[in-house]
Amino acid sequence: MKITVNGSSHEIDAPDDMPLLWAIRDRLKLTGTKYGCGVAQCGACTVMVDGQPKRSCVTPLKFAAGHDITTIEGMDGAEFEAIQTAWRAIDVPQCGFCQSGQVMTATALLKEKPAPSDTDIDNALAGNICRCATYVRIRQAVRDAADTLEA
């Protein structure tokens, strides 16, 4: 299977039903994308596929091939930078394990809705579990990032 990740093309010798998550982590050694549940419940494995957030743990390679995949290591752009800055300013992470996924989803939200309401934030991020429950700060950081983009 040939997949394009962060702008580079990679030949992956694997069955076509292998989830993208394991190709990214075990084969390409891009480990910012995490395994948390394997069944699209927690969002820790979120990557961008053609600019849309996808749970890589339930995305078979056959549906990833031919698409433009971006992991957190390959993210850039105004929304991503605003999210990174906002996250750091108020020390959002605790254990940090879910945060790649949170950041990916938050960035996807801001790309589509630069000025999200609190409900928009909840709707986008309800699929990303944080067992440390850093949700108060995630919500605040998304608001802060949106304010930065607006300014």
């Binding site: 938050a106 939200l109 928009d120 986008a124």
Partner: peptide
Amino acid sequence: GAPGMVCSTCHQP
């Protein structure tokens, strides 16, 4: 789905 959490975030073809 909502921006940031669309059906195809999880559901495949």
